[in-house]
Amino acid sequence: MRQLLVFEERDDAEEAAETVAEWHPWLGIPKVVRETLAGEDDAEAAQWLVVVEDPDDRLTREDLTRLDELAEQAGGWREQE
């Protein structure tokens, strides 16, 4: 399962990626990528994503709650793919 933590600021995304790697070293360091919002031409409308790959579905409900809280601290949110 893939979890996406969405942030407006790159610094927040990079900090969250480091935190996730500390909490769950078996996941490795999540990728930080920039995604432009659909229909937006303005570069300022881009979001920063922390891509948390969990191919074995090892993250528990409690882990997902912690990811939600981590994202929310910086005004972000979590999406599941």
Rank of each mutant, 00 (worst) to 15 (best):
L70D: 01
F7E: 03
V52K: 00
G39L: 08
F7M: 04
L37K: 14
L64S: 13
E44T: 07
W48Y: 11
D54M: 03
V33N: 04
A45I: 10
V6L: 08
L49A: 07
A16F: 10
A43I: 11
L64G: 04
W77A: 06
E69N: 02
L49S: 08
T19R: 14
L67E: 00
L64F: 03
V6A: 13
V6K: 04
P55H: 06
Q73E: 01
A16M: 11
E72H: 03
T19H: 05
E9L: 13
Q73G: 02
G39H: 06
W23L: 15
L5M: 14
L49K: 09
W77R: 10
V32C: 11
R58I: 05
V33L: 06
D57C: 14
E44W: 07
W26A: 11
A46R: 04
W26K: 09
R61P: 06
A43Q: 05
V20G: 12
G75T: 01
W23A: 13
E40P: 06
T60S: 12
R34A: 11
A13C: 05
E62G: 13
E15I: 04
F7I: 02
T19D: 02
R78I: 01
E14I: 05
G76A: 14
E8C: 07
W26V: 15
V33A: 10
A71N: 01
I29Q: 06
H24M: 03
E79A: 11
V32S: 05
L59E: 03
A71E: 02
V50L: 01
D11L: 15
T60G: 02
K31P: 08
A13F: 09
V33R: 08
L49G: 14
V52A: 01
D68T: 13
D56E: 12
L64P: 07
D41T: 09
V51S: 02
D57M: 12
L37R: 12
Q47H: 07
R10A: 11
E44K: 11
L59R: 05
A17N: 08
A74D: 11
G28C: 00
A46N: 06
E8A: 15
D12I: 05
A45S: 10
D63V: 04
L59N: 09
